[in-house]
């Protein structure tokens, strides 16, 4: 009889522990998605006639497109365990390069865009070489390279915004629509799919994840760790440059510090996204969810008329809760 009772207690305890593990695992993987859902439901209740409309959905996705490009690119070095602090400066420089070439050299739009993206590729390559060949910490290396990019930017533009006399065709990249949806939304969806495939369905992508998980084990497994890290910086630089070009096409000009503000928002989106569906790993879908969550928050602030300080409190709290709850849930899952 005693034995039966003890067994029952053990079974009940094991069952309770198993339930707790499942609950915490669900919170860890879906907590941030739930948070986004909560935000959407709350906003729909508060502003049903303005927020929950197809027009506003398109508006939010359109606003997400530019920050998504830079954050998706940043995801690659983060996956390999590196940081890239030059992305904002790269975006600013590429926008200035594109507009300067169009204005001063009368270069065609697509040639100028290509040249600007080449600038991003070169900056990414320099970052990669400094990090992997010179073995400089990625924070220091990209900070230095980014600062050099500012210098080049000032040399080209003299600190002044580079405007275009006839910007209509260039603006069309941002303003044009297909089936009522702006081009940037298609660009965002298209590149998200491409980058997801690259990171999850190619040898290169698997190698990046292996390097980020355990570089020593990856090297022993035959992965060329330095080369993989270098490629991640090149991809990041290219997407930072694309961001700068898209930004210039949205504003109709390029400012020397136009893209600088995307640095922190890209990191915030990527870290928020690391808690989406996965256990703290950086990944493409998570980053996209992070970007869209921030855009919805920004949209909510404008629609509801919140005071400005709420903007900072909300964005900070969202990031802390998103990543914090995920981290807590993973610890609890491991402990139970």
């Amino acid at each position: 009889m005693t034995v039966i009772v003890e067994d029952s207690i053990k079974e009940a305890s094991a069952s309770s522990s198993s339930t707790a593990r499942v609950v915490w695992r669900l919170i860890g993987q879906y907590g941030t998605i739930a948070m986004l859902g909560l935000l959407i439901v709350t906003m729909t209740a508060l502003e049903p006639s303005v927020f929950a409309t197809s027009d506003n959905l398109v508006n939010v996705l359109n606003q997400s497109a530019i920050p998504a490009m830079i954050a998706l690119g940043l995801t690659f070095p983060l996956v390999t365990g590196d940081f890239d602090l030059s992305i904002g400066n790269t975006a600013s420089l590429s926008g200035v390069v594109a507009c300067t070439l169009m204005r001063d050299v009368d270069m065609s739009i697509w040639m100028a865009i290509s040249a600007a993206i080449m600038v991003g590729l070169v900056i990414g390559l320099v970052n990669g070489v400094v990090v992997t060949v010179l073995n400089v910490n990625s924070l220091v290396a990209t900070l230095g390279v980014g600062t050099m990019a500012i210098g080049v930017n000032y040399k080209i533009a003299g600190g002044q915004p580079v405007g275009l006399s006839d910007s209509e065709s260039f603006l069309e990249i941002s303003l044009g629509t297909l089936l009522g949806i702006p081009y940037p939304v298609y660009i965002m969806i298209g590149f998200t799919a491409v980058l997801w495939l690259l990171l999850n369905r190619t040898v290169l992508g698997q190698s990046m994840q292996a390097v980020g998980g355990n570089p020593v084990a990856a090297r022993l497994s035959g992965v060329r760790v330095e080369r993989v890290r270098l490629v991640s910086f090149v991809i990041c630089g290219a997407f930072a440059a694309l961001t700068g070009v898209l930004l210039a096409s949205r504003t109709g000009s390029a400012a020397v510090s136009g893209g600088d503000g995307y640095l922190l928002s890209a990191f915030a989106a990527a870290f928020f996204g690391s808690a989406v569906l996965r256990d703290g790993q950086f990944h493409i879908i998570g980053t996209l969810v992070g970007v869209i969550t921030v855009a919805i928050g920004f949209n909510a602030i404008a629609l509801t008329g919140m005071a400005t300080y709420w903007q900072y409190l909300f964005q900070g709290l969202l990031l802390v809760l998103g990543v914090g709850v995920g981290s807590l849930a993973r610890r609890r899952t491991a402990a139970t």
Partner: peptide, 18 residues
């Protein structure tokens, strides 16, 4: 209603759209 785009022109365009 007021929004702070933190000096970023892209954010300002987004705020105007909102």
């Amino acid at each position: 209603s007021s929004v702070d785009p933190q000096g970023a022109a892209g954010q300002a365009v987004g705020a105007i759209s909102n």
